[in-house]
């Protein structure tokens, strides 16, 4: 990420290419790189997914635990994101080096999933005020080659799609103490409804020293990210509503550009959501006996 060094000539080359709608790897401005997704790669978690977007490699594990709800929201469960940038991606992430980036991404995810239109936290409640489900979504970034936000959001959606939460057979209040019985059958689970989970779309605006105008690129590689002064990360739900917008980078935009960017993000977000749901459904159709490759292929 920070270690791609680009000379001025290279930056000019990339920027001119974007202008002509022909990027260095041959894509046009609104194309994504090829993606691979596989779920259930970690059998000991409630849900997991591995997503590869060209060289960006993300592994997500979802764990469900029983916890006490917050006192001011007694009917709601909890959802917590944790993003860890592994040193495998670049030596700069060793120790605490990747913490800043990790907190930024987890904050963006928290914002995107904050609305109860996305995930109604009351569905995670077991016994009001006593017990609720807490979902830990843990993201491990293994390789980064640009466009981390999109890849992470897609992987999180895939992992949540595959997550299976054990069914609660009985939940009673026994003399003030909560008593919960979970189903013994490991296959007796509840799946989450991911129909309204958003995906993040990153649009990079190449601004810098050459006044390009309103050209923005989707799915930037790490070189393109270096050249851009500002990028907008938009969380789009499958029905086209926008749940969060964050602007990153040190540049500024004109209002008309912002509006155009948001519209483009919405269109792409809808297509991306449809794409990932198709892929996940196809994977489901392969059945539970499919061979899980994980990192072996």
């Amino acid at each position: 990420m920070a270690n791609t060094l680009l000379s001025l000539a290279e930056k000019t080359f990339i920027v001119h290419g974007v202008d002509d709608n022909y990027r260095t790897d041959g894509r046009n401005r609104s194309e994504y790189r090829p993606m691979e997704v596989e779920t259930k790669v970690l059998p000991h978690t409630s849900g997991s997914a591995r997503l590869r977007l060209a060289n960006t490699d993300i592994l997500v594990g979802v764990k469900a635990e029983v916890d006490t709800p917050y006192p001011d929201n007694p009917n709601e469960g909890k959802l917590e994101f944790f993003v860890d940038c592994s040193a495998n991606a670049t030596p700069a992430f060793e120790g605490k080096g990747g913490d800043n980036l990790g907190t930024e991404i987890s904050n963006t995810l928290t914002l995107a999933y904050q609305s109860s239109h996305v995930l109604d936290l009351t569905t995670l409640c077991i016994l009001p005020q006593q017990k609720c489900w807490k979902l830990y979504v843990d993201v491990l970034i293994l390789q980064c080659d640009g466009n981390l936000f999109d890849a992470v959001a897609l992987a999180v959606k895939a992992a949540l799609y595959s997550a299976q939460i054990p069914k609660v057979t009985t939940a009673t209040l026994d003399g003030g103490k909560a008593d919960i019985q979970l189903s013994d059958d490991p296959f007796d689970c509840v799946k989450l409804d991911v129909g309204s989970f958003p995906v993040l779309v990153t649009l990079c605006k190449n601004f810098t020293f050459i006044q390009i105008g309103e050209n923005c690129v989707v799915d930037p590689t790490s070189e393109e990210e270096e050249c851009s002064a500002a990028s907008i990360v938009v969380a789009v739900m499958p029905n086209g509503r926008i749940t969060s917008v964050v602007k990153t980078g040190y540049g500024s935009l004109q209002p008309s550009t912002l509006v155009k960017t948001l519209e483009l993000a919405k269109d792409i977000g809808i297509k991306l959501n449809a794409g990932i749901m198709n892929a996940l459904k196809e994977e489901d159709e392969l059945g539970s006996q499919r061979e899980i490759f994980g990192f072996l292929k």
Partner: peptide
């Protein structure tokens, strides 16, 4: 800077 949280249509 543009910062949006919630669920709004375009």
């Amino acid at each position: 800077e543009f910062f949006l949280v919630g669920s709004i249509n375009i």
